[in-house]
Write a protein that binds this DNA or RNA. Sequence first.
DNA 1: CGACGTCTTGAAACTAATCAAATCCTGTGG
DNA 2: CCACAGGATTTGATTAGTTTCAAGACGTCG
Lengths: 246, 246
Amino acid sequence: MPHTALERRRARLQQPHCQTCSLASLCLPLALQLEDLDQFDAIIRRRAPLKKGEMLFRQGDAFTSVFAVRSGSLKQVTSVGGEEQLTNFYLPSELVGLDGIDESSYPGSMVALETTTVCEIPFDRLNSLAEDLPELRLQLYRSMSKEMRDDRRMIRLLSRKTADERLASFLTGLSERFRRRGYSAYSFRLSMSRADIGNHLGLAVETVSRILGRFQSQGLVAVSGREVNILDLDTLAQLAEGEGCI
Amino acid sequence: MPHTALERRRARLQQPHCQTCSLASLCLPLALQLEDLDQFDAIIRRRAPLKKGEMLFRQGDAFTSVFAVRSGSLKQVTSVGGEEQLTNFYLPSELVGLDGIDESSYPGSMVALETTTVCEIPFDRLNSLAEDLPELRLQLYRSMSKEMRDDRRMIRLLSRKTADERLASFLTGLSERFRRRGYSAYSFRLSMSRADIGNHLGLAVETVSRILGRFQSQGLVAVSGREVNILDLDTLAQLAEGEGCI
DNA sequence: CGACGTCTTGAAACTAATCAAATCCTGTGG
DNA sequence: CCACAGGATTTGATTAGTTTCAAGACGTCG
């Protein structure tokens, strides 16, 4: 327990708050006024960081909260009949757990891909706050709607795209998400293994590896382990949209 | 304009209302009390039935409303770069248009597969009503959450299942949806073409046709044109879950 | 330094797509 | 009511893209 004013201030500064969070403009409180932000911030529970491989929640756990990613990254893994399906990756500012509302349990486990911190937002409190704050309610709808859109994009990818197009999509998608979060769109580190990528894109590990190799020999990217440099984003984006044959 | 009391009453009875709708227990007003139901009913706009092939809305149209299917069925078609992707089919009591909230435009066209009637629910009015009716708000979250879950199931289907498993999944899924709506789980008519099914499942038309034929010769179903009789739901369900090889 | 997990590469096998053509419906007009 | 046109569906043969199996290279963490 801090005793002096200085110590209290220091503790307060260390304790993260939406008001000082660099992701606030991308996150759920996006549309809130400063005075509403305080209310929102008050319901957030901070969590100890998750280590690589640790789970935020397990498939089937009772749904109690949604979570905003602060740093690091997560994968959602749904296990059905022994097989595991990786349905999504989540980066900072993204909201996870929303698909648990319907059946009041989480439909998949959420696993940290690296050291990861999250803000926990108890859903009942979020819901009552949403009653009073129309902007928050709308933003919550938007988050869900956006996730539905992303899922549809994924469905299109899986049902129509070739392996090359899938990998190109994956890389350009990540690039865009990093860019929007203020990181380089051209140079980043993959926090997930080739196996994770393959699982997510519906491809065998070997195929992922081969195609990444091919992209490299075509001068589209430079890959070294998990470090990625995108050399020709335009061509990659064309490929991703199935315009490789024009 | 009706003149007599009798005519007015007749008109009122013909005009559909949530209070008398047989789908109310599956639809958005699911959780509402009778007095709240009136409020909800008041914001609904009835629509002239759509004929087969007509569109409820087009891809890119401004998002204004969500719609509940009353009778018939719809398909959602997203067109990207000339190619069309059929992302979902919708049956009575299901809610369509929710994925338009995020970018305030519909991400795909909604096309009637047969003569179809819908209830239009203007979103701004739904949203303000949801402010006052916690049950409605929760049901709205649930609808979206459920759609996310369904999309994830679809992702799993496309990324891990063989053509046989996909068809089996499709048939058992339809069967279950019909059952829950009070229709036969074993005998129904497909409102969509083989091409639609193929597009939805990420398969070529020929593959759909072939596998349906194979299922028939295996005694799993009896198919005649678009009429389907499910003869062995258990085996079909096992197949759908990838347990065909046990 | 060595062991284990991750990643890459090669060859063979298989699934489903594509191409091609016949047959079956469905709605329409004579 | 029947014939016909056009689309929808089925069936067959071939081909292409990915997976699977197998094995070796790389990296990294004790």
